[in-house]
């Protein structure tokens, strides 16, 4: 009983003394900072995703207040936040183009070939290091969902066949999923672009055909039909201008890996 009372008193006294010291120190050593930093920080989403190029929202707020960064770098907050931040700074907001993640692989469990069983750690990064978890294609999606775990906005989910699907509404374009993907299948693209070759395979045409039914086999038909819309990068056709990819090119793709979403 007495020990409880004395410990309560002593600890209370010590805590009180330290509390007073801290509050005194705070009032004595307070540093005036630009009040706009705090205002901007309050408006920012506060998720510290780093999409703006700064380590966190605090750093970005400081950079904007000091004039080092434009007010429209926050892709998470979008146009709304950019306008408010610009209003504080007395600037024009400028356009914030909505960017979303695109998953460039549709080789799900049914369409691609799997040659081995894998029961190691259930993550793409581990499976990738271990040679690909038995998926024959060494470029395709492994399906363990590292991207799903990386997403702070619940905007990417695995479908029932093991390919991640991006929820465009929720996706803020922070790019954390693209970073998490060991196979670089996920790219960040303006939301208005909707036409892609949904494959990243650089395998030879023969090998591509063997390992996946929906891979780019580098036949070059789409590039011939729409030379301004696509080009070959090694063994892979890549969309360079979605506007100029013709319907005919999409139709003629033998593996149906070039399409619009």
């Amino acid at each position: 009983m007495s020990a409880a009372v004395t410990s309560l008193l002593v600890m209370g006294a010590v805590a009180l003394v330290f509390g007073i010291i801290i509050s005194l120190a705070y009032s004595k050593f307070r540093v005036e900072v630009d009040p706009r930093v705090e205002e901007i920080f309050d408006i920012l989403p506060g998720v510290n995703c780093g999409a703006c190029g700064y380590p966190g929202c605090q750093n970005y707020a400081e950079a904007v207040a000091s004039g080092a960064a434009p007010p429209n770098k926050c892709t998470v907050g979008g146009a709304e936040v950019a306008e408010k931040v610009a209003a504080i700074m007395g600037l024009e907001a400028g356009e914030v183009e909505k960017v979303v993640a695109r998953v460039l692989c549709i080789g799900d469990r049914e369409k691609s070939v799997w040659t081995a069983d894998y029961d190691g750690p259930q993550s793409c990064a581990a499976a990738h290091v271990a040679g690909g978890a038995g998926k024959a294609c060494s470029y395709g999606c492994l399906g363990f969902g590292d991207c799903v775990e990386a997403c702070p906005f619940d905007a990417i989910h695995m479908n029932d066949k093991g390919i991640p699907v991006v929820d465009e509404e929720k996706c803020t374009g922070c790019g954390l999923c693209a970073e998490a993907c060991p196979r670089d299948i996920i790219i960040m693209e303006p939301v208005k672009n909707r036409t892609y070759v949904f494959c990243r395979s650089q395998d030879t045409p023969k090998r591509s055909r063997e390992v996946c039914s929906v891979s780019c086999i580098a036949c070059g038909i789409c590039v011939r039909l729409a030379p301004e819309g696509l080009k070959m990068e090694g063994n892979l056709a890549v969309v360079i201008d979605p506007e100029k990819v013709t319907d005919q090119a999409i139709e003629k793709c033998p593996t149906k890996v070039l399409f619009r979403i």
Partner: peptide, 21 residues
């Protein structure tokens, strides 16, 4: 418990002090 209290408070004060000085 008391040592943790001491350390946490000290770091706070030291941080404010350095920030100012």
């Amino acid at each position: 418990v008391s040592f943790i209290l001491v350390i946490a408070s000290l770091v706070q004060v030291v941080e404010m002090f350095i920030k100012k000085v």
